[in-house]
Design a protein around this nucleic acid. Sequence first.
RNA 1: GGGCGCAUAGCUCAGUUGGUUCAGAGCACUUGGUUUACACCCAAGGGGUCGGGGGUUCGAAUCCCUCUGCGCCCACCA
Length: 878
Amino acid sequence: MQIPSKYDASKVESKWYDYWMNNNYFHSKPDEREPYTIVIPPPNVTGVLHMGHMLNNTIQDVLIRRARLLGKNACWVPGTDHASIATEAKVVAKLKEQGIDKNDLTRDEFLSHAWDWTHEYGGVILEQLKKLGCSCDWDRTKFTMDDDMSEAVIKVFVDLHQKGLIYRGYRMVNWDPEAQTTLSDEEVIHEERTDKLYYVKYQIEDENEYVTIATTRPETILGDTAICINPNDERFTNLKGKKVIVPLCNRTIPIIEDDYVDIEFGTGCLKVTPAHDVNDKEIGDRHNLEVIDVLNADGSMNSFGLHHEGKDRVVARKDVSKELESLGLLVKTESITHNVGTSERTKAVIEPRLSDQWFLKMEDLVKPAIEAVLGENADIKLFPKKFENTYRHWMENIRDWNISRQLLWGQQIPAYFYGDGKEDFVVAENVEKAIELAKERTGKSNLKAADLKQDTDALDTWFSSWLWPMSVFDGILNPENEEIKYYYPTNDLVTGPDILFFWVARMIIAGYEYKGEKPFKNVYLTGLVRDKQRRKMSKSLGNSPDALKLIEDYSADGVRVGLLLSSAAGNDLMFDEALCQQGKAFGNKIWNAFNLTNLWEINYNIKQPNSSKIALDWYEAKFNTTLVEIEDHFSKYRLSDALMAIYKLIYDDFCGWLLEIVKPAYQQPIDAKTYNKVMSIFEDNLKILHPFMPFLTEDIWQYIAERTPEEALIVAKWPEVKPINKVIISQFDFASEVISGIRNVRKEKNIAFKDAIGFFVINNEKSDAAFDDVISKLGNLDTIEYITEPVEGAMTFRVKSNEYFIPMEGAIDVEAEIKKLTEELNYTEGFLKSVQKKLSNERFVAGAPEQVVNSEKKKEADALAKIETLKASLASLD
RNA sequence: GGGCGCAUAGCUCAGUUGGUUCAGAGCACUUGGUUUACACCCAAGGGGUCGGGGGUUCGAAUCCCUCUGCGCCCACCA
């Protein structure tokens, strides 16, 4: 048949992707087969494909395609996440470019812009996944803000509220002044920073004495409502019960005593600002202190900032310190290294801020989730296992989850206020139900929708994505539907360890709460993709390659192989384009192997050469050995090792050895029996490689034979393991050493391969002659003759105790031969000595297992035999 | 501050219960090669006191202690 001499990946890849789509192979519906399900970690709806996604989704596709080949009902559900804070930030920025201020828009107007944006960019990343070859069931594509998905979120909120697990509280929360929203504890990243520690004097009321405090935030002095000392601090007994005057605003505040104060730190005096520090808030609560908030929502000073009003807190800090200095109240400044909370998304420094927020009580919810991963009969396995510790630590120290966000893009909190009081609200799925509830609560039967004001906050994105494995199958709204019963729990979850808490842990929590069952059986945590210098790949560094450009340059198959070649689970992946090149070269190698078989002329009348027959038997044994190895790797999620095993099988064993052995001489035909067997082996190779290189393998598969759509490789049957002939493998290994020996002699003596040579063997090992025809072919030997006496005037080499002779035309360098033999003899004698030393150690013979002792005895015997051979050779040269 | 993990060839990493295939793989490197599938190729080869030190054992890359150097997660001390 006519095939292109070069493999054109870009054409081939789109062709087969279309073919798979048109034949609906990615689509799954419940049937009698065993399901194999993966839900995609939904990428941000407005995101673009980066290397992390490439790795992640390649792994998922490998797992899905393998499951499909194993005959399971493979279902990979794709989708995107509305990513409330990230998307809202992007929309706000875009509006700003157009001169529109978010605050000038109504809620509906803003949301309409956000939806426009979503519709414009929303599908991009999913299209990119198709280029990578991902075999997702696109008919099932979900978005976390689809109507039914949102409905599920609201239903869960109402339910948790009814259970008393969701509550509203006035608490110190993490405030992002840039996004102007609260964040959960998980969204706060602690960064080490060096700042100034300011020492400031406060005058004691009615005295000309001062106390000095240390603070990193002088601008909050204006919010001070007490000075605190440790009651046991003997230095300050004179201060007890006195008052001090707050600098700048000249308010009088008390000196209080609390054990919290560390006598050793700073001056031992602490300024207490309950509005701007979690600890100060607690002290304030204990001592009934006033709370003075000096900041606006955007981090600028409010009217309590007096003449600093309107300045950003950072600017105000400097200005206040200058002012203090000019007043002679700034004693000194020091450098201090401490940790500062920053926003995961906006990088802004977090302000502790008091406000009314919604919280989810976690204490009881986490219990089944802890048991599921860490219990005695753990239902969920993490790969690699080391993350179980991290998981445990987080789960056991969990605090209530702040789920409200002061954002518009997301599910709006279904709480409806009927009055101005903090408790004057009802929680319901919709306004109609809310009115009913509000009527009951207030006794006012004339309440209308217009009388109710819905809470303006939206829910944390993760409060929707934690339902993902259930809600994509409509498992929340219709818990008894056929799909959720069939596909849930899913099998494997593949994601990065950075969202272990954000997402993975919470899905487990939600799964047990709403299905009473785990959401997935195994969690495969990939590493971060880094560049060659170990730097994290990021847009700002510009070290992240363009994913689509890579696919263009190296083919999707090549990139997939490149990514997987060095990515053990949980280890960071040092990405190097050279690996993609290796992937592409591998594809080329296989294509050329196919090209070779395609060039052969088949003859039905010639007999199968013995060398071909034995080589095919050997390959079958080798293939099955590898197959067993691959199964083991897959069971441990060692995809990199599985791929490497296949790589070596195809590259070395199939192309390097088998094809070379069965390849007919120039312009000679091949016998039909060999040809058919080679092609059937080729097909088996394609099957096991298909999950990794889906396009190339499908392409060759379809060239090998006419196939109906039902016979496509993507839905072929994974090979079954057959019994392995171990003897033939060791015979081959021996033969390959002999061939190596021949090649070495040829190289040393500069004998071209086309010149056939004579070959003689003293078979001390009594090795089987099964592979002699193979040795003869690959060594280009005239004959192999078995002899008992050394050949004179020949190059020699040894494998074990066998000696091989290749007669030379010219003179042999006897000196060099003697030297070579002597070196070999010395080495073997040294080896023998060490083995014998071990064997003469009574404690070794008594203590070691029998098979270990036997193996040492075998080594001894082999060495003795070899020494004999070497000595005989040396004697014959003298 | 608390916890977890890592250190094996130039690079990226395997090495499961201490002995059986214990010092390995891929890449890179060196040398040679226009044999009629493939130079995106073939053949051959060099290269490691298994981070340092100590211990347990007949036997340690593997178990224990210690030191050094990295990485990650968690954390409200100004």
